[in-house]
Amino acid sequence: MATSTYPLLEVENLSVAFPVSGGFGFGRRSVHAVNDVSLRIQAGETLGLVGESGSGKSTLGRAILHLERATAGTVRFEGRLITGGLPSDIASLREQTAMIFQDPFSSLNPRQTIGEGIAEVLRVHGKAQGAAIPARVGELLTLVGLDPEHATRRPQALSGGQCQRAGIARALAIEPRLIVADECVAALDVSIQAQIINLLMDLRERMGLAILFIAHDLAVVRRLCDRVAVMYLGRIVEMGPTHTIFDQPLHPYTSALVAAIPEIDPDRPLPADLLRGEPPSPLSIPAGCPFHPRCIHALPACGHGPAPGLRHRADHAFACVLHDRSSDSIHPVTKGALQHE
């Protein structure tokens, strides 16, 4: 494969909106699930996408794989335009990307055995023919830590962790370069969660996979990802290398999320509440900085005008105006939140 000068994935100003009908079908509104998002993923890189429910992180993941129609902006995979692109470009996207899902049971066809599901991928994408198929299925199952005998089982006969492994094996059958993992460990038991994270780490190393890891569990993201993007109400509010995001978050939302990670330290008190109120609905996004109603540092100016854009500081970007106020680079918000050394 000729290595191009393009990044593996390039998303620019992507927006996704869904129409919703108001009461009795009057007054059509739309939910802006994803709003003006730009990001890049290089080959072999793992980008964590975090945020609360309703932040639009899953929608973004699906829009990147062209499973959700973008209303504005572009997605390019290896430089080829995917949004509104040619069928051949989308076919090439499908040849090189795969997705793993949150619910390991419901993402597998209940009427197919694990082996049939994987074999179907191999056949459709011409990755193996005839007698080579069962051999390859066995190989893939072994790769994800299952027994080749599991090929004859149906999802119902497997545990959650085994199903998730089967889902990963099916994704790998494509021989993808990018995997979008949507909350893929959230539904699993803690001990199984760690096994799946390790598996993803292994695979990434062995196959040079790029992963878009969508999760709400920041501890897992910290463990696995090279870079992290934080979403709030459809926008990326902060993005940067993992250690920077966790150690020196610049957006007050990120610091609140980081501080809220429950740690197994009996002597650490339950952190003080760093957010006000409840997450607003994506149906009525506040004016100004969308985060200002919950921000404990919000200034009157935060409630007006357009949403603040991302400011870049080296490889770190954040969407908060508070930093302009203080002359030094560390702003008042993070001082309080830096509990992780």
């Binding site: 001990s191 760690a194 096994q195 994270i197 390790n198 463990r223």
Partner: peptide
């Protein structure tokens, strides 16, 4: 096997 257990780097300890 909690992801945050040991500062968070490298493989996780599993059961």
């Amino acid at each position: 096997c909690q992801p945050s257990s040991d500062g968070g780097a490298g493989r996780m300890i599993t059961i």
